[in-house]
Amino acid sequence: MERNVGGFDRTWRLVGGALLAIVGVAALAGVISLGTLPALLLALVGVVVFTTGVVRRCVINRVLGVDTSGSAVTDPEPIDEQPSKRAN
């Protein structure tokens, strides 16, 4: 699978994923009271989001056809040019 995560998307995945994982682990440790299930979910989602930022690949982006890495080369549609008529 080719890279499809980059730029702003990658930054937020790294920062947001780390924060979610930290909050989840803190809740599991009893520092924050959220309950076990929400804490596990936060930690798991945080690790997954952070990992997609590190490896720069996301299955959901691939399924949706989203590429924020900037590596996708798009062919612009050809321009249908009509020869101009010059007045002699």
Results as ranks from 00 to 15, higher is better:
24 G>Q: 04
71 S>V: 13
76 P>D: 14
74 T>D: 12
80 D>V: 15
27 A>C: 09
64 L>V: 11
50 F>M: 05
73 V>W: 10
56 R>D: 09
48 V>P: 04
28 L>F: 06
80 D>P: 10
35 G>S: 06
31 V>H: 11
77 E>W: 07
64 L>A: 11
52 T>D: 08
26 A>I: 07
85 K>N: 13
42 L>T: 02
72 A>D: 10
17 G>T: 03
3 R>S: 08
58 C>F: 00
67 D>V: 06
5 V>M: 00
40 L>K: 07
22 I>F: 06
46 G>W: 00
13 R>M: 01
13 R>A: 01
43 A>D: 03
41 L>C: 10
30 G>Q: 04
53 G>R: 02
71 S>Q: 15
88 N>C: 09
77 E>H: 13
37 L>F: 12
81 E>V: 13
70 G>I: 06
29 A>F: 09
73 V>G: 10
42 L>G: 03
86 R>L: 15
70 G>F: 06
60 I>P: 01
1 M>E: 12
68 T>A: 09
75 D>G: 06
84 S>M: 15
40 L>S: 06
55 V>W: 01
80 D>T: 13
52 T>M: 03
33 S>F: 10
54 V>N: 06
52 T>V: 05
47 V>Q: 05
81 E>R: 13
29 A>V: 07
69 S>K: 03
83 P>E: 13
26 A>G: 07
73 V>D: 14
6 G>M: 00
50 F>S: 03
53 G>S: 03
27 A>R: 00
48 V>D: 04
50 F>R: 01
18 A>K: 05
32 I>W: 05
31 V>A: 12
38 P>V: 05
16 G>C: 07
45 V>A: 12
37 L>K: 09
50 F>C: 03
38 P>S: 08
76 P>Q: 08
31 V>P: 05
68 T>S: 14
20 L>M: 12
4 N>I: 00
42 L>F: 08
80 D>S: 13
65 G>H: 03
40 L>T: 06
88 N>L: 15
4 N>F: 00
31 V>S: 09
37 L>V: 14
70 G>N: 04
